[in-house]
């Protein structure tokens, strides 16, 4: 307020409105233009691009994060699905293996049974053959014995008489057949 005198002098006489003191207009207008240009360049060269890039980056980060969250969610769903599928597959596989094993066992069993049956049948046939053979042998033996006995009986009954073996044999055979 040391400048009061100056101001009064500048304003002319009396306490007028400094706003209407046209002598200061060029000064104010000049400095206003300088100020506006300075602010305009500070804003348009530095501040506005920077803020715009920060806002864009933030928007990008948000979008990316949301997308990533969506992706993770989808992955989790997929993983669950895969897990369920694997579980179902494993169940089916287990079922299948059990079925297969059962069938295999069945087959092996059937085969073994068939083999055993076959062996039994073979054995039975063989045994029958042998029985038949034995029977035949036995009949032969009986004939032989009967012939021998008949010869001996004939010799005992009629001593001195030569025993014709063939006659005895045919007689025995005829007897046995009859």
């Amino acid at each position: 307020m040391a400048d009061d005198a100056t101001i009064e002098a500048a304003n002319g006489a009396g306490p007028g409105m400094p706003q209407l003191d046209f002598s200061t207009f060029p000064n104010q207008i000049f400095w206003l233009v300088v100020t506006l240009i300075a602010i305009y360049f500070i804003l348009s060269k530095i501040a506005l691009p920077r803020i715009a890039s920060v806002l864009a980056e933030r928007q990008g980060t948000l979008t990316n994060d949301l997308a990533a969250a969506e992706d993770l969610k989808r992955q989790a769903a997929e993983a669950e699905e895969a897990y369920n599928k694997a579980l179902a597959d494993a169940r089916a596989e287990a079922q299948r293996i059990a079925e297969e094993t059962r069938a295999e066992i069945q087959a092996v069993l059937a085969e073994a049974t068939a083999k055993a049956d076959e062996q039994i049948a073979a054995k039975a046939t063989e045994s029958e053959a042998r029985i038949a053979e034995i029977q035949a042998n036995a009949t032969q033996s009986v004939e032989d014995v009967a012939r021998d006995v008949a010869g001996d009986v004939v010799a005992a009954v009629m001593p001195g008489q030569t025993v014709d073996a063939d006659t005895v044999a045919s007689a025995v055979t005829a007897r046995m057949k009859g």
Partner: peptide
Amino acid sequence: MDQFAVYPLFGDGPVRWYT
């Protein structure tokens, strides 16, 4: 209204457009 007065920052000279 004194608060609205425009005066030079340095010295008491006249207020020119560049002052």
